[in-house]
């Protein structure tokens, strides 16, 4: 959060917020398109409900995972 008291132009903050929103939105859109084109549709939609029981358990600090 920007320190409001040190900025004297509210419009600057507003434009900053708009710009950041736009940037985040574009990033997601771009990554979605890139992912859609890089991987096959069958792989992307291969998740099935309940199929992950006893499957890969990933320890977040070591992204490798173990069985």
């Amino acid at each position: 959060m920007p320190d409001i008291s040190t900025l004297n132009n509210y419009q600057l903050i507003e434009y900053g917020a708009w710009g950041l929103s736009l940037l985040l939105g574009l990033w997601m859109l771009f990554d979605t398109l890139k992912t859609n084109m890089t991987y096959s549709e069958d792989l992307l939609t291969s998740s099935r409900e309940g199929e992950i029981d006893d499957a890969l358990v990933i320890d977040p600090p070591h992204q490798g995972g173990h069985r």
Partner: peptide, 29 residues
């Protein structure tokens, strides 16, 4: 509440809309 004013002494208004959109965008990201 900060009571910011512009050069002419008019009270400045910080609009809510940009922050509404930014909140949603940031959290979605």
């Amino acid at each position: 509440m900060m009571g910011m004013t512009d050069a002419a002494g008019e009270a400045l208004v910080l609009h809510d809309k940009p922050f509404i959109v930014l909140t949603i965008m940031f959290l979605a990201w």
